[in-house]
Structures are given as structure tokens and as C-alpha cells.
Design a protein around this nucleic acid. Sequence first.
DNA 1: CGAGCGACGTTATACGTAAAACTTCCGCCG
DNA 2: CGGCGGAAGTTTTACGTATAACGTCGCTCG
Lengths: 338, 338
Amino acid sequence: MAAGSPRPTSRDVAQAAGVSQAAVSLVLGEKWRGRVSERTAERVREAARELGYRPNLAARNLRLGSTRTVLLVVPALTTEFFAGVYTGAARVAAEHGFGVVLYPSPEGIGPARDPFASAQAALDGVIASSMAADALTAIRGDQLPLVMLDSDPAGSTGAATVNLDIRDGVRQVAEHLLGLGHRRFLHLAADIASWTFEVRARELAERLAAVPGTELRTVCAPISIEGALTAAESALAAPGPRPTALVCDDDKLAAGAYKAARRLGLRVPDDLSITGLDDLALATAIDPELTTVRLDAELFGERGMEALLAVMEAREPPQGDIPVELVVRGSTAPPGAP
Amino acid sequence: MAAGSPRPTSRDVAQAAGVSQAAVSLVLGEKWRGRVSERTAERVREAARELGYRPNLAARNLRLGSTRTVLLVVPALTTEFFAGVYTGAARVAAEHGFGVVLYPSPEGIGPARDPFASAQAALDGVIASSMAADALTAIRGDQLPLVMLDSDPAGSTGAATVNLDIRDGVRQVAEHLLGLGHRRFLHLAADIASWTFEVRARELAERLAAVPGTELRTVCAPISIEGALTAAESALAAPGPRPTALVCDDDKLAAGAYKAARRLGLRVPDDLSITGLDDLALATAIDPELTTVRLDAELFGERGMEALLAVMEAREPPQGDIPVELVVRGSTAPPGAP
DNA sequence: CGAGCGACGTTATACGTAAAACTTCCGCCG
DNA sequence: CGGCGGAAGTTTTACGTATAACGTCGCTCG
């Protein structure tokens, strides 16, 4: 293992072990049942260890025409949610001998490099979450197996989808708040044109419309604490009867809403109930702790990877949305409580 | 671009354009100044576009012996800090024609796959942050250019390091609190054996030791809100005079400390001043907003990548720590304030 | 006794690209 | 007019691996 010397190749190992390069490949490829004697196999392994041999992946990929590598495209890494998705996907991938490469969408990263250029390696498949349309066409152009996370199952792309049952989560939130007696609602929505947010808006509207005497206003904000703060503050300060329940599209928006409430002198939950969606660490950091919908990010990633494996093997991907769970904490109470 | 057909190769393009494969390689490689006429070059480009040609990266990597891909090893993605590091590193990398692959440390991911197996692609270099020692030896075994983030510059590895000036950050925190009049301190430390945390402890102790009449106790906790909560609660409830200032190793610990204070009926900052370190979104989500040290994650990533480029080109990596800045918010006040 | 077969390997080839080395043609200058 | 140099390509080779195709024994069985 002399320093500075070029990496040893399988041919070097072969020479050291006194066999042919093919034999090395057979032994190290674990596919030598009746092809090589146990004694030579051991000699080869010994030589490989001795030289510190590592197969050249570029060569292997070229030969096999596949890299056993998959790309996970996420919109951002500004919360721990997609870290969980990655963890789940990577676990399942590893069980099948695949690796996962992470690509956070090109916010702030030069547009010159698309996901594929960035990953450099050839890819065997893609899991994409809430992505921009242009990046999507780039993918389809490559004709790669594709699974979309949290996207319209009836979308025009025809790609397989894996979704959290956000609809059910919003339903649970609505029932919870209606059950507490709330009738005047404000929806603090994310200002992103994405299916997963459209679902929230639609489901909430439908659930509330089913109950006579309810009101629903909606205000959009960028997904950041600052953005939510200003949007929520002006909406809550608007004339007319004040909403008693504030449904936020995610936990970060909810955190901004807390600050808006505080500025306006509103107590949570006495004057205003607030709900989130995600169940980030943030949800239990703020006071009172946030009533929110728990999303199982790791399971989401696992299911995504399982679906991709199915697509790659030309099997039918598994169906069924991933269940979510309402977590009731201190940010919700009956309206007008003391 | 018939569907299902195998991807076109440079040879297909050559045939379509009526030239040799070498000509295609020359034209598309942008290195054909005096080698190919403008007219044929255009024909080649046209044919490539027509067929939807994408070079096979595995083949290119094999030929060039380099992948222009770099690995960024991060301890976790549970806060947005390392997302910022990635963004910065990726920006600089893109400017130099490099891609960055992200590898979150193997918490929960099968140990069977080391970073290199995971990245699948061969790598040209590694930027590693606060990593475990065994993973490090795996890297050194590969003799790859390596830059360490937030690691002991006098460490035994001899690798280049890029550091935030955490020492100065802690100094600023100490001066701020001492200036407010605090004398009894509690240090809520991360229970991770890592240089970056050792620096915090050492610097804080030194700064306080320089002022007569100060007291310092230390308690360790896992970096999570829950962990910080229990550790801080029992430490604050301990007998003897209560500390008036609580210095936390990062913002997440500080968030847990808020909850501990609340449970014990202590008001922040009147009864207890609290400081963090990181300036995450979390810092402004909690009430009162957290006095903390702002770390420029993107700049950190940029510097890391610049250093790695220097190492790869056998240049001397740039020296100098990255400055940090104390951000004073509402969580600190003079002790015993009304 | 020779055909056949299994064990144990080896030789040869292909993957798709980049680039060094070579060919051909032509214009131009001494 | 001979040769030189440059433009415009082409032919060839190498990168490191996996595997199909091909020996070569020694033994067994009909």
C-alpha cells in the first residue's frame, strides 16, 4: 500500500495472487460456487486485502450498465422532514444493494447543473418530491424509472406516486376543531403551487362547508417564520369578527402564527387555537406545544424506495396512502375559554 | 428518440452525423478549435440534439479517471445548518465543474455501506464534518483529498481544516453575560466527544476564570429538546444558589432549556438568561427570542469547498477561521431584573 | 477404453468515452 | 518544384471490470 501509487486494480491483485484477472473478479463478485477452489479464493481475498484493493466503480458501472444508485430529489433541507425521508429510503435501498444520492432542489445552486449532472453518476432511478415542472421533464427525457412523492396520483406524467394521507390529516384537524366548537376559521396556507398544498386547502374547505354556520378565510404566506408572522398578523388584525381557529399548512407557519398572536396580544389557545402539520421538533419547542399532524417521514421514504424498486423491476408498485395521526397538544382549546 | 430503445451512444451520434466517433467526442468536449470545421461541428451538435444524446458518465469517469464529484459528510440533517453548508459547497463546486454528493452519517443506516459504497461513484475528494474516527480511517485508506470541517487543526491526521471561529463566539457570549453582571453560570453542553464542543467548554471556562467571583457548573445532554429539558431541569433544581445565566452549546439545547425554565416557574430572561449557538430558525420561533451566535453556514460550506479545491490542486489551502457574530435578543438581561 | 463430465481456471471481449497518433489534402513559400 | 505546415478528420488504444466462451485435467461409467 505504497503512498502516492495509483490505486491497485483487479489485475494487480491477480498478479499478486498468481491467478488471472478473471479469477479475481469471480472471487470478489461472490459468484464462484463451482468455478474456483476454496484455496485459491482465499489466496485472492488475501491479496486483495494486502493491496487494499477497491474495485473501480466507474468501470463496474460501465460494464454492468447500471449503478445501483438512485437519486432522491427533495425541495429543501430546511426542516428535518426530508432528512427522515432520506433515512427511510436509504435503509430500504441498502437492503437491496442500492445507494441513495440526495439532491436538494436548485434554490441558490446554479441552474447550469441539473440533478443528473450534479449526481455525476449514472442513475438507475429517481424519487422526486414536489419538484418543479422543468426538472421533471428533464427526468422524463432520460426515461428513468420515476416515483413521485406527494404528487397528484391522477397527474399527467403517468409516474408512480406515493403519498401521505394528508387529506385524512386535514380531516382530523377539522373534526378536532369543529368538535371543540370552533366556527370561524383562518387558513394560513403555503404560497407554493404544489399538489400537496392544494389538497390541504380543498379538504379543509370541504369539511367546513359540510357544517352550517362555519366561516373560512384563507391567507397565503411563504414558508418561513417571518413570512407567516406578517401574513398572519395582518389577517388577524383585519376588521370583522376574529377567527377563533387558525389552521396552518405546516409547523413552521404555525410558529410564525404564534408570534403574530403574541404581537396582537392574543393568548394561545384561549383566544386563538392554532394547528400545524408535520410534527417537527419545533412543535414541542414553542409554548404552548403545538397541536399538529404527525407525518412519518421515514416510512414515507421507505415506501417511496419500495415503489421505485417495484417500478425498476417492472412490477406493480404498492398502492395505498400512508396514514397520518393527529397529535393534540396545548395549542387548541374550545373557543372563548377563560 | 424511440421509447424503450437503449440510450444513444456517441457512436450513434457519429453515424447520424456521418462522422467518426472521435469527432463527436471532440465537438461535444468543446475542445475542437482547429480540429473540426464549424460546419461539421454544427452537424454533430444537431445530431446529438436530435437523438437526445447524453454522454455515459460511467464511461467518461472511467476514461478520465476522475468523476469531478465530491462527497460532503455531515453528522445529521436534523437542523438547517448543514443544509446551508451543502448549499455553499455546491455553489462553489458548480463554479468549478464539480458536483457534490451528500452523505448524512450512518445513524440508522446500515453500517454495511460506508460513505464510498453509498456514493457509488468514485470520488475526487471529501469534505467531512465532525465525523466518527472509524469512518475517517476508511477515508484515509482511500488516500483521497480530504478537508475536515470544525476539527482540531492540530489533529493527528494532517488533513486540512476549515473552522468557524467558535472560540470567538463563546468569548462574545461570555463577555456579553459578564457585562450584564452575571456571575453564576451553568453550561448546558452537548454530550458528544467532538472538538467543536470541547472548544466551547474550554473557552467558556477560561473566560470565566479570568473574572474573580464567577462560578461555573456544567451539565451534559444529548442534542435534542427532550434531552436538554431533563438535563437542564435537574441541574436548575439542584440545591445551592441557582445560576443566573445558562450557556447552551447550541440552539436546540437552548429550546429545551426554555422548557425546563418554564416547568420550574423561572421567567426568561428575568430569572434566568439563556444563550444558544447556531441561530437557527428555531431561535426566533421561541419566546422570548434567543440570544445566540450566528454561524454563516453557507460561507462555511464555500470555504470548505475552496479548501478542498486547493488540496486537490496541491495548493496551500487558505487559512483563517470564519468569523461569527453574537446576536443579542430577548433571552438575556441583567440578573435579578424585576 | 474412450466418451463424457465436473472442477478449476484462463483467454478474449465488450461496455462508451477521450485523446494520442496517424492520414490526407491543400495552400504557400523559399 | 519540393517540402512544410496546418486544417480536418479518422484510426486506434486504453481506462478496469464482468462474464461468455473456451481449454485442460482427472475420474467415472457404460
